[in-house]
């Protein structure tokens, strides 16, 4: 995945969402490689909400078969998924 401006914007929007809606508003230490599942930042309930955000924000519907731990393990993976679906 090339780090194009569009990709950067997606990552920033996702990061803000996670900091605001799931964390305590702070994004200290939250970066593209922060392990979201391993550190218990998101779980199955939060993934369902995150999918809603992705749909509204980017107009992208994540297909069921792409809802895997691999795609949600960190912001880099999730950004890559959204960018590839936006095409």
């Amino acid at each position: 995945m090339s780090n194009s401006p569009a990709t950067h914007d997606i990552e920033q929007a996702l990061k803000q969402y996670v900091a605001r809606e799931i964390l305590d508003g702070k994004d200290i230490g939250l970066d593209a490689d922060t392990p979201l599942l391993e550190w218990g930042v998101i779980n199955s309930l939060e993934i369902a909400r995150l999918l809603g955000f992705v749909r509204e924000q980017f107009g992208v519907v994540v297909p069921l078969e792409s809802v895997t731990a691999e795609h949600f393990k960190d912001l880099r993976a999730l950004t890559g998924l959204v960018a590839s679906l936006k095409g």
Partner: peptide, 10 residues
């Protein structure tokens, strides 16, 4: 920070 505490727990 919440993230820091989560990491500590994890």
């Amino acid at each position: 920070s919440l993230l820091g505490l989560k990491r500590h727990c994890a």
